[in-house]
Amino acid sequence: MHMADALLSPAVGGTMWGVAAGTIAYSSMKVKKELDDRKVPLMGVLGAFIFAAQMINFTIPATGSSGHLGGGLLLTILLGPYAAFLTIASVLVVQSLFFADGGILALGCNIFNLGFFPAFIAYPFIYRRIAGNEPSKARLTAAAIIAAVVGLQLGAFSVVLETVASGISSLPFSTFVVLMQPIHLAIGVVEGLVTAAVVSFVSVARPEIIRGATESVSLGSLPLRNVFLSFLAATLLTGGIVSWFASENPDGLEWAIAKVTGSGEVTGAEDGVHGMLAALQEKIAFLPDYSFKENAAPAEEGVAYAGEAKGDEAARLGTSVAGGVGALICLTLAFFIGFVLKRRLVSEK
């Protein structure tokens, strides 16, 4: 369920980065306030444990295929929401840097999808409500399954929203939803079963671990409202800024560049810096013409667009061939430069 950089637009990626960063900052503050310095090594080691656990596969009942633990819910049961959120986020950072699971820009999305829902929704509102303090095995299993399913459904839905909002994949919203939600229903059931199996094993073998964990998070004192409010504020802020950019010009970045370089309303001498900036602005205005104007939702404007497309086909082909040749040259050039640099480096030694 990891989002990848390649499917994201900067606006969506940036917004979610803001959201994730805000939640990390808030959780860090909370964890620090708890003053339980036992948690420092515990969070680290449990994060590493998730890596080890994800490498061991199990057989999914009644299917014969295999799966592995996600771990979000398990971590929250063991550590409580704030510490668990930080731990999940740290796992995702390492995965994005070392295993290319997700990507650097997609980190915000992934941290939110895989961390926020299990830690701040599924655990406090579902797992704890159902499981209570000393759950029977059946109750624990039910709580874990429902919580895992809800967490994953929300996460999967959020993946769909982020992908569709980015507009890089052409998958229509409805198809994507129909694809994602049922798959994650199944994954959620399995995740719940596995989480319950591990929790019940540990609560028999070392009851103090599970007991200590549940005691440290009393439900009443969970100020979820704060989390929601700060989360909402972060979204509005980043989302607002980014979409303001985006609405001015479909390609938000160009607009941003133009703003930053100050080419907006400034009128003045046509020479010197201003001249250059004016030229730059012209460039920007002209930009959408060399590529295809469409950015998102081509289906809606499909008809008009198709007509235009036919007339332009020859021109497009020309542009594309030139682009293709150029791309090849660029690639060759890049690798040639790399080769020369490396040769020089080696001969220096």
């Binding site: 656990a53 057989t59 596995v194 591990v198």
Partner: peptide, 12 residues
């Protein structure tokens, strides 16, 4: 592969 119960105890 590994059944759920033994997976639970291994991971546990």
């Amino acid at each position: 592969g590994l059944g759920l119960a033994s997976f639970g105890s291994l991971i546990g």
